[in-house]
Design a protein around this nucleic acid. Sequence first.
DNA 1: GGTCGGAACT
DNA 2: GAGTTCCGAC
Length: 475
Amino acid sequence: MVDQQQDFLVLTAVSNCLKRRGQVKTTGPLAAYTSSSRVETVKKRKQLDEHLASPAVIVEQVPHSHLLSYSGLACEQTHTDDHLLTTVEGSESGDEETMETLVAAETLLNMDSPDSLSLDQQHYTQLYVPSLGDAITSPVTHQLMVSVEDIVGALSQPQWVTLQRESVAEQPKKKKRGKKSKRPESPTPDITFKRGKYSKGNTLYLWQFLIELLQDRQACPRYIKWTNRNAGIFKLVNSKAVARLWGKHKNKPDMNYETMGRALRYYYQRGILNKVEGQRLVYQFASLPKDMVFISGDEDQEDQGNHEDDEDVPEESPPSSDQSLDDLASYEHSFPPPPPSSRPGYQRSRQTSSTPATAQRHQPGPKSESRSPAQRRTVLRPLGGSLIQQQHLPIVSAEMLRTLQNVQSLQTGQHGSVFRTAQLLGSMCERQAATAEQTTGQIVTLQLLPVTCPVKQGKLEVKTEEDPDSGLTRE
DNA sequence: GGTCGGAACT
DNA sequence: GAGTTCCGAC
């Protein structure tokens, strides 16, 4: 039984990892066991014990299953389908309101569903180590585009990077007319989030929302896109659509770009955003989470400082800014939000999180508070050491590796079964890398493949499957 | 139509 | 506190 539970320790983490990556669903006792609900942990462990004799986990590819995680729904496809059939409420007349009836928008906006996990919860993997007696909440790193080396290095690196200001932004900002703002500076949040900060309501701040969109293949680059991802510069390709989505998220049906833009402008004062002058609808994050997921082809080719990472061709031609909001309809109909594992900025250590602004405070340079427009120019450092991998090659989740690290830190004698499992998984990753390197001739990051992990009598069997995306075949 | 920031408001 | 709404000016 101990071995079984230890295997579950690994399987739980693996399952969580895969679910966040949107590649799997879990059913059976493990699905419950891997719930992030701490309250239910003990109860579910009992369920686990009762079901250990039966096949404990089914891991399989689920199209768009990450949408479930994104919206905090249970990882059941049937549930998904039901949800996808839901019609967004508040349909209004007029062409611009077409999007209001779109299904996927609600999915996006269900990010703050009361049923959804808090961001904190989503980013913690709960490991139950029977021999330790208590549930251990292990901070996990969600990093989709990373190399193994980067992952290792990341564990001791700051979670936010301060972004460089483009040269165009070095121009002194024109002095605004009128009096100096008497509005008190809202204190820039500290670099460390208190756990549970987002648990109430799960409402995203606007900057978080934008980052979410920038990591969503359906929104980026269609409605919002990077124009220079290394500098954190993005453009609201379809400002109306973005504002509409924001309004939907905030339950403000009258939201428009003018209003949303005011909120964005307040970010100037707080050092969260900069305006890229001379370019309409173009803003810059003062800093970005290091676990940003950059969607392939979401960056303007002409604006890239570094083209090494741009072998990807945009999947779709970016629309014009005045693109009909009907386009948003197609987006929302097909909207598959990114898996939680790719959620930005919320790379939680045990009790920390951060806003871009707060991260900046930890960088050399002017304080983010009370900065003059000229002071807003962010002191940049290159992102060469970033976790963000420059090439979009097969990857392995950092969470997975973290899990392996956690497992491997255990005592061999006490957790032999866990060790064996970790070794098995580790060797699987190595084989993936070797195969990929042979195929591409490049240094390759690892991608965790969909795996089938039936538990039989306390032993883990891992079968890899062909990865339909990479074209690489594994044993 | 985008941008800006003050002011009052939620 | 973090926007939202409205506004006049550019």
